[in-house]
Write a protein that binds this DNA or RNA. Structure first.
Length: 130
DNA sequence: AATATGACATGCT
DNA sequence: AAGCATGCCATAT
C-alpha cells in the first residue's frame, strides 16, 4: 500500500499536532548541543519533513523560550544567509552556551546531539538540559 | 487544481 | 570549498 497515503493528512488539528511534536523535540535539545532540521523532523515522527521544521521555527514569536538556535542545517551549517541579522543572532546565542558557530557552521562531532560519538560519550551522558 | 515557496538534504561537478 | 541540480513535502496563493 502506498505508505504516502498512509500519512494522516487533512485531519483537523494535524498541523498543530505536528508543530507541537516538532517544538517538543527542539525544546529537548540540551543546552550547548545542536541538531539538524532533518534530525528534528525524524525525531518528531515526521521523517523527510525537514522543511516543515524550518517553517514552524520561522513562526516562533520573538522572545519564545524555544531554543531554536540549536537547530542547524545538514553538516552543522547555519541555515541563515551570511550577513543576515538572523544569522548573527543565532551565532550569538550559540556562543552564549559555549558553541562556536563563528565560521558559519558548528562542529557536529563536538556539539551534535543525538549522535554521541565514541570518545565523547562522557560529555553526552553528562549533558544537562537547561 | 496548478504553481510557487521554504530557517532542508544529497549528490555531483 | 562552492555552486548547481534534483528530490522532498507541507503550505500558501
Amino acid at each position: 500500500m502506498a505508505d504516502r497515503s498512509e500519512r494522516t493528512r487533512g485531519a483537523p488539528g494535524e498541523p498543530e499536532r505536528r508543530a507541537r511534536a516538532i517544538l517538543d523535540v527542539v525544546r529537548s535539545i540540551p543546552r550547548g548541543r545542536v541538531t539538524t532540521y532533518g534530525a528534528v523532523a525524524a525525531r518528531a515522527g515526521l521523517p523527510r519533513q525537514a522543511r516543515l521544521v524550518g517553517k514552524v521555527l520561522s513562526g516562533l514569536p520573538a522572545g519564545s523560550r524555544v531554543p531554536w538556535q540549536r537547530v542547524v542545517a545538514a553538516g552543522g551549517r547555519i541555515a541563515f544567509p551570511a550577513g543576515s541579522d538572523a544569522r548573527a543572532r543565532q551565532v550569538a546565542r550559540l556562543l552564549a552556551e559555549g558553541v562556536d558557530a563563528s565560521r558559519g557552521r558548528v562542529d557536529l562531532e563536538r556539539h551534535g546531539w543525538s549522535a554521541p560519538v565514541a570518545g565523547d560519550l562522557d560529555r553526552w551522558l553528562w549533558a544537562r538540559d537547561e
